[in-house]
Design a binder for these strands. Sequence first.
DNA 1: AGATTTACTATTTTT
DNA 2: TAGTAAATCT
Length: 707
Amino acid sequence: MINFAKELNPQQYEVIQNGDGPCLVLAGAGSGKTRTITYRVAYLLEQGVKPENILLLTFTNKAAGEMVKRVQELTTQNERDSSIPQNDNAVIKDDSGLRLPYAGTFHSIANKILRHYATKIGYQSNFSILDTDDSKTLLKLCIKNHKPAEARKFPSVNIIQNTLSYAKNSGEDLEEVIELKCSHFGEFIDEFRKISFEYEKRKKESNSMDFDDLLINLNLLLDNSDTGKKFAEQFQYVLVDEYQDTNKIQSEIIDKFANVHKNILVVGDDAQSIYSFRAAQIENILNFENKYKDAKIFKLETNYRSSQEILDIANDVIENNLNQYKKQLRALDNSGNKPTLVPQSDSEEEARYIISKIRELNSTGIKSDNIAILFRASHHSQRLEMELVKNGMEYDYRGGMRFFERAHIKDVLAFLRILNNPKDTASWFRLLTHEEGVGPAAADKIIQRVVGVENIKDVLKTDTDNLSKKAKLGWQNFLSIFKNLLQNNKRDSSVPQNDNWCFPSTLIQTIIQSNYKNYLQNEYTDPKERMQDIEELANFSEKYSNLNEFLSEATLQEKHTRPKTSELSFDEEDKIILSTIHQAKGLEWDAVFIINLTSTGFPNERASVTNDGLEEERRLFYVATTRAKQQLFLTYPMEQSGWGERINEPSMFLGEISMDKIEDHSLLFPANSLALNELDDNTEDVKYVPDDYSFTPGSFLKDIDDL
DNA sequence: AGATTTACTATTTTT
DNA sequence: TAGTAAATCT
C-alpha cells in the first residue's frame, strides 16, 4: 500500500481521497498540483478502478508521459514494498509497464477516438492531420480565390488563420471575433466567410483535419448518442490538469465525458492562464462552481518550490490583476536571496552578465541543468545564443522550430501521408511544387487528376495533357521517387498490421535512397545534416509498424530540434535551458533568468493593447518568476542595439514590485543618460556578427560552423 | 499566363 | 528563416 498520508501534505491528501463527485482544485504555482493528480490516479488504481476507466487530460504529451511514469513507479514500488497481494484489476502490465490508455492531451485522445469512429462523422479512418503549416498552405489557396482585386489592405494569411481558428475554438461568431481581434479588417467579413467556407470544404474533401477539427469533431462525435454515452459510461473518473487553459470546446468535451459518473476533478491556477490567444477562457475555472453546484473546492496555497523572497515579488505583481481569485502564495521556508534586478547597457552586455553569473552559480554548486533563461518571444534569445556559443557554453533550446516541422522532415512525411491518404491535397501540393516547372497552377491540375484514384498505383498512369513541357518533366521526376515507394512496399506478413503498408522505417529508407537527395542538394547548403535528420526520423519511426499511427503521432509530437553541439559533448545532460515562458509552464529550476524585461519586449506591445491582454502578460510574468526555486535574476538591455537604436524603458511589471523586495542594481549605472551619451563614440566597436547573419532560434551553432 | 528570380521585410505565445 | 511583392523569364 502506498502511504499517501505520508507522501502528501494534508491538503493534497484531502484532495486525493475525496469521494466521488465534481471537484475543483485551485492550486497556486509550485503547490504540487501535478503531483496531486498523479497520486489521485494511483489512489484510484489502488481502489480497484481499471486504467481504461480513467481519463487523464493534460496540456502536453510530455506531461502525460511523466505522470503515467510516476504512477507506474508508485504502483510497482507499492507491489515490491508490500506483502499484501495486488488487486489484479488495478494494474495492467505488459513489457512497457502500466498503460493508462486514456492519458494525454485533448488532441491525442481525440485522435485516438476519432480514428475509430471517423465514419460516423463523415471521415475515413486514415484521415491526415494538418499542422499549422499545412493548414496555412490550404488556406492560401482559398485566399487566392477570394481576395478582392482592388488593392485594399487585405489581412495576411496568419491573421486569417488565427481569426478563423479563434472563432472555432471559442464558438463565437466570426464577425464578433473579427471585431475583437482585428476590427480594422471588419470590411472584409464577407471574404472571411467565403474563405472559411472553402477551407472547410477543401479539408473535408482531402480527408484531413487540422488541430481545431480534432477537438470540434470529437465534440460532435460525443453528441452522437451511442458513442457519447459509451464514453461517458466508460470514464468513471475524469481528471484535467491545467484547467485554466481550456477553451470552450474543450470544456464541453470534458463535461460530456463526465456526464454519467460526474466524477470530474479539475486542477488549475487562474493566475497561470496564458493561452487566451488560443481561445482558452479563464471563465472555465472561474465559473466551475456555478456549473457544478455540488463541487467540492480545495485550495493548495503552500508553495514547495520557491523561496518566500521570490513569491513576494510574484505576489506583488499579480496583485495588479483584477480578474482573479485572490491567493497569497506562502513558501515552506524562507531562506533565499532577494531577486536581483540588473539592467545592462545592451543585449550583448545582458548576455555577458548572464554568462558570468552562470559561471558563478556553477562554482557554488548549482549545476547548469538547474539553470534556465526565459524570454517572452523566441527571437529574444538571439543575442544570448550568440554569446553562449562564443563562450563555449552549451544549452538546450526549447521553443522555436519543432523537429517535425522542419522542411525536409515534412517532405518525407508528405510522401508517407500520400500513401496513407491519397486525398491529402496539402501533401500533394507540397511535394509537387518542389519540382522545377511546377507551380501552384500546374500542381492544382495534377492534384485534380490524382486525388480521385481508386488504387494509389494508378497515379503512375496519370495523363499529363495540358501540362507544359517543364511541368511534365517535374511530374516525371516526382514519379521517379514515388515509384520506389510503391515498388518497395513489401509487407512483412508475419507482422500484424492495420494498413496495407510496410514499416514506416522501410518507407523512409526508400526515400533516403531515392532521388530526393538530389532535391536536398540543390535546395539547401546543408544537405548532409538534413539527411541525418531524416535518418533520425527513420530511427524514431522504428517503434511503429503502422503508417497511420506513425503519421498522427509525428504530427502531434512536440519534440524540438536541438542545436547540433560538438560531437564530443560528453555530458549531454548538464546544459542550461533556454525556453520561452509558455514552454516553461509546469517546470522549475534552481536559478532562473528572465531577460529582455523592457517596456516593449515584455509585456508584448501587441498583446497589451487591451486590458485583458495586459492582464495575461502579467500572468505570464507570474508564471516566469514562479519557475525559480532559489534564485531569480531579472535583466533588460537599456539600449536596443541594431539599426533603430532606441532607449528602452524597463518593463512596467518591474515597477509593480516594491522596492524593498528586490536587489536593484540599476544604480550601478549612475546616470543612464551618461551611458547613452557615450553611445555615439562606441558605435565603431567591432561586434562579431557574420555578414550573412540569419537567425533561427535554436540553430545558431550551425551558422557559426559554416563560417 | 504561369514559373522563377530577386529584393526586401518582419518576427508573440502553441496543441 | 519565411513570407511577399515586383520584376523577369519561358
